[in-house]
Amino acid sequence: MQIRLLLVFAAQKLLRLGRLLMAVAVFTFVLLSFSPIDPVKAYIGADMMQISADQQALIAERWGLDQPMWSRFLDWLGQLLQGNLGTSLVFNQPVSEVIASRFQASLQMLAIAWLLSGLLGLALGLIAGALEGHWIDRLIRLYAYTLASSPTFWVALLLLIVFAVSFKIAPICCAAPPGVLSQNVTFWQHLHHLLLPAVALSIIGIANIALHTRQKLIDVLHSDYVLFARAQGESLWNIVRYHGFRNILLPAITLQFASLSELFGGSVLVEQVFAYPGLGEATVQAALRSDIPLLVGIVFFSALFVYTGNTLADLSYPIIDPRIRLGGQ
């Protein structure tokens, strides 16, 4: 029974993913087709003068640019379905390989930032919500609202100025000390370079999660069952412990997984500031140097990433809330 439910759930989710990726494909293709950017010019860049019109036409033909739009789309879709995302012009490597290696570098940073922002955001939100109206709540809200309106890249810049330039306790850039080959990087060097970007990334997530957790806890504290718990003589902190925590966990987890989308976007900016060679930095490279295959690959990958987060959230619901059954309403 349980296994059947799980299979139905997986089938539904896969079907929806297929539909979503199809939509993203149509959207991306239409957008890029109407784009004024000439992919050939973009590829060749400054050397355009040295290349004859014939050669340009040859390149265009090899890329299938002379075909009508719908046939190019079907052709492109066929390639995608076979898992062929094309070759990155910037890195001169298959797009899938670039994404795989870059994402590996980003993943650790994303994971640390995700955990940090989730735990700290939850803690701050619980404290602020339980002490609604108290000066501690005001302080936490001020902090969270200020962070929420701070530009991500500026926060990263500040951290860099404070910890790397002034205190010199963090490296100023990159994923490894200069001149060290990637296979020779020790675990500590690795962590040393990872930590500041991860903290910068987490700071942005904290605000959102803290504010939502606070609101949810306030809703719970105004519920009938908390009124009854108070009538039984339960203290505020025990109400938070026995009822608050249990009842905000579900929205908190939803939010935590939904924050993956924001986190991915944030990593683009943070990696840019720290010159950290992850997927976010590759996104900027792809856009700045007109690497269409890589950019499209990253768009697909980010959609998959966000979707995976949402699916994980769906899977966690029945574990936390006995009223929710998998695949049901």
């Binding site: 009938d224 069952y225 009854f228 039984q232 009822h243 809330d321």
Partner: peptide, 19 residues
């Protein structure tokens, strides 16, 4: 409250739904 004075609430909505 909870010791010498006790409340019997209106409905099951006054129980924690997740406990």
């Amino acid at each position: 409250r909870g010791k010498a004075i006790a409340l019997i609430p209106q409905s099951v909505g006054y129980l924690d739904p997740l406990m």
